[in-house]
Design a protein around this nucleic acid. Structure first.
Lengths: 210, 210
DNA sequence: GTGATTTTCACATATTTATGTGTATTTTTT
DNA sequence: AAAAAATACACATAAATATGTGAAAATCAC
């Protein structure tokens, strides 16, 4: 018997899902809520096998709920539900440890099938979602990180370093004195907590700084 | 009407698949073969919408067949079929532009559904496969590339460079003379076609050399 | 508008790197 | 067994890098 906990904003859909799932052999809906405001205590109370989680809810939404769950529990399977297959949410959800991602228009029979899948360790997603996921991963490594607060000029210089330019070449290409290049680089080292060109270059790759 | 072309080693399964698919509304099996030896001319002859491709076949196998197709055609959908969901093949297939990946034990009804999915642009996969794909991508950057034929010792030295070690520190840690470190590094530069430490480090990341 | 940051430049110097040329074992490949 | 790589070491030198100290103008943020 798979214990299911439902989070869904819309009362009609919430009722519908509960009826559908609870009325099916092998499934048991232990409770359903309209947002994730008290998700941790609810999780502890019901100890569900699978959580069906709507993304868009007023109050604490599904992504936030997922995060809260994963802070304390890696075991419970979480199946995200959404109306739109919008890129950003899919990615956020998967990053935060969602076990699957379904569109609300998924037919009832398949929904049950997917809940079964996820309960037994699978990662179900509708094929349109799967397409997106693959596309995202293939296009991925583009989104720059700037937790080190490099300035524009510093990022430019770092880019040159990564491309293997010497100080002299950088000075030439940027139309500044070599001593200026030096001072930028000194600042970069400070900010990245390194003290050599290759460490800076390595860090640029590791932390996707460019 | 979705035109399907089948490549499958096992005569019984080939017959079975053909019967199943051809006998279903909306599907038409245009031909089926026991290997990919002549896949390009067969592709041109039949112009299928979807190719159902077994991975393990004697003669030209499915992966090789997929590669040949993608050299000349990006449009035709290719659904890979396999008995085992072994990691390596899944990855290879997806890298080479497979549109989906199914286990042979997929029930007939779902198989048809998946063929429909892929024909309309989806990327169907069984949930066990999807799980693997996600896991692979998340674990990914681990599988070293050695097209530059770095020797063991050279790779070690490069690793130290990436970690920001100076020649002196490398010599110390590897219990060799600093001149030996130099000579290794010179060799590394030759092989990577670079001439500075940072270029070598950058290349190590770009080409996932370590 | 003023204090903070960024960008620019200068001078000095110790250390590190890049390159060349050569040699001698050992290991691997053919 | 011979040829080819890989590994190890030495000496020399020009170029590049790291580091320090200092300072002025421009730009940004509150």
């Amino acid at each position: 018997m798979i214990k299911v906990l439902i989070y869904e904003d819309n009362p009609q859909l919430r009722e519908g899902l509960t009826m559908l799932i609870d009325g099916s052999d092998g499934f048991n809906v232990v409770a359903s809520y309209k947002n994730c405001n008290n998700i941790i205590s609810e999780l502890k109370t019901w100890k569900p096998d699978v959580i069906l989680m709507d993304i868009d809810m007023s109050g604490v939404n599904g992504l936030e709920g997922l995060k809260r769950i994963r802070e304390v529990d890696q075991e419970t399977k979480v199946l995200m539900l959404t109306v739109f297959d919008d890129n950003k949410n899919v990615f956020e959800a998967l990053k935060n440890g969602a076990n699957g991602y379904l569109l609300k228009k998924t037919p009832p029979a398949k929904l049950l099938e997917y809940i079964g899948d996820v309960a037994s360790g699978g990662a179900p997603m509708t094929s349109s979602i799967a397409t997106q996921v693959l596309k995202m991963f293939s296009e991925l490594p583009h989104q720059t990180n700037n937790e080190y607060n490099l300035s524009d000029r510093e990022r430019q210089v770092l880019q040159f370093l990564v491309n293997g330019y010497s100080y002299k070449m950088i000075a030439n290409d940027m139309f500044i004195a070599i001593d200026t290049v030096r001072s930028h680089i000194k600042k970069i080292y400070e900010k990245l907590h390194v003290n050599s060109k290759s460490e800076a270059v390595a860090k640029a790759f590791k932390d996707r700084l460019l």
